[in-house]
């Protein structure tokens, strides 16, 4: 089908419909769900979505249901290989158990980044990072 459809958002995503997809958002959230629909802005409709968090060698899932994601917030959209998805060398643990560690990691990272930005600005002559401050 590659040669029949030009490389546009629609052309690239048409094969992904009704497949289980991984979506990473700009805020770092990782969602897995079945892609049901999209449009020219890559707004996405994800069904049976679960949010996954990772920490160390563990991961946890939390069911989130039906999502309509505004395309600009998407960093990555990838198909999940159903044959291989269970082969990951990570422990599946309870969401409530892992969540505090995950939040903690986010806080730590945020503080580190703030500190780094401060050093760069005050000592190294860099300008302040504009806007949202993420790398995207």
């Amino acid at each position: 089908m590659d040669s029949l459809i030009p490389f546009t958002t629609s052309g690239a995503l048409v094969d992904c419909v009704d497949r289980k997809m991984l979506v990473i958002l700009r805020d770092g959230r990782k969602l897995q769900g079945v892609l049901r629909s999209y449009d020219q802005f890559a707004n996405l409709v994800l069904e049976d979505t679960v949010e996954r968090i990772y920490h160390g060698n563990a991961f946890a899932e939390f069911p989130r249901g039906l999502f309509l994601i505004r395309g600009e917030n998407v960093v990555l959209l990838g198909e999940i290989d159903l044959d291989k998805e269970d082969e990951i060398p990570l422990r599946h643990v309870d969401y409530a158990t892992l969540e505090p560690y995950h939040q903690n990691a986010i806080e730590t990272k945020k503080r580190r980044e703030e500190h780094k930005a401060q050093v760069l600005f005050e000592e190294k002559g860099f300008c302040k990072e504009g806007g949202e401050g993420d790398g995207y």
């Binding site: 089908m1 459809i5 048409v14 419909v17 629909s37 999209y38 449009d39 409709v45």
Partner: peptide, 22 residues
């Protein structure tokens, strides 16, 4: 057949684009 699949998939999507769903 490949073309048909594409058309079917597209028409399928078109019926409930994200904003139509909204």
């Amino acid at each position: 057949s490949p073309r048909r699949d594409a058309v079917v998939a597209l028409s399928h999507i078109v019926t409930m684009l994200p904003l139509s769903l909204l």
